[in-house]
Design a protein around this nucleic acid. Structure first.
Lengths: 163, 163
DNA sequence: ACATATGGGACTGAAACGGTCCGGTATATA
DNA sequence: TATATACCGGACCGTTTCAGTCCCATATGT
């Protein structure tokens, strides 16, 4: 579940790169700048475009640009663009849903939703803007700039122990 | 990254099952009760034992039991027992750490830590008790004894808030 | 001793992952 | 209009991981 695939890593790198330098950029340029093999970068960008994270412009002088402002794009969108819906179990698929033999199992399975939700929430609290500007990233628990602060407040109030 | 593997699903089911009925249980019995193929269940339980989530007793009358009380076991432990450390990128491995060519990439990679942290925290806030007793799942802070579990199991199968 | 039950690892078929390549289509520019 | 540019949609392939099974060694209660 929780091992990050290379493709996803690429996606975050590329999206963050776009966030840092706005405007349209060709896949080729992005690939060079991020040190990602060109065909692979292209593949990733296509998926991001399909998912609505970036918009594409075809033809000469075309390229990719973020679909929205970096602060308005959650990291979950980038991840889901590559990996599909987050943390689904077979049981939460429409097909075999509501078909468990033992109520204990079924109860457990229903609670996967809770896990999914928690993860989804945690990821959506992190925006591309947070990723694009490392300067403020180190200071997670200390001082944060305005927008970041608001976002972090809701995310991190429950408990701060990470053991 | 975020697709849950079957093994992990099994692990959660088995651990939750143990949480609901405390005491030692043989792998064989657990497999039957959870409808998980026996060799596979056995494999999963071994991993859980290795990770310290459950304790094992060998020999006749042996079996598996939770290592701690259900409320004290985070779901992240169960997941990590099967899948290893959560959400690592190659960059965050000791080997190639601190060796990025482009500062933008490096900044992004550093921010993976933030993502990892967010996910980890979200998961650690869900305990096995929450999974085992769906009815009282909202009340995270309330501790339950093993005996209460059986009572709850009958009553508490309906409160599935899927947000 | 003997039956029971876990520990560790080897092994296999199937699926996913990482990466590449190609033909098709849209578009800016000369 | 002709042409170069650049994205779109897949096909393809080698490698790795996943899911599942099986076997033998070891520990333990009766």
């Amino acid at each position: 579940m929780l091992r990050i695939s290379k493709m996803t890593d690429y996606a975050v790198v590329l999206a963050s790169h776009l966030a840092a330098a706005d405007g349209a950029h060709a896949a080729r340029d992005l690939a060079l700048q991020t040190q990602i093999p060109e065909p692979t970068a292209s593949k990733v960008l296509k998926k991001l475009a399909r998912a609505g994270v970036v918009i594409s412009q075809r033809g000469a002088k075309g390229g990719y640009a973020l679909a929205r402002r970096p602060e308005q794009i959650g990291i979950n969108e980038v991840i889901e663009a590559i990996e599909g819906p987050i943390a689904v179990t077979e049981c939460s698929d429409e097909s075999t849903d509501s078909f468990c033999e033992y109520e204990t199992n079924c109860g457990v399975r229903a609670n996967w939703q809770r896990i999914n939700l928690a993860v989804h929430r945690a990821l959506s609290e992190i925006s591309l803007a947070d990723m694009a500007f490392p300067g403020t990233a180190e200071l997670v628990s200390i001082a944060l700039s305005g927008k970041d602060a608001e976002r972090m407040r809701d995310a991190g109030t429950q408990s701060n122990d990470v053991h």
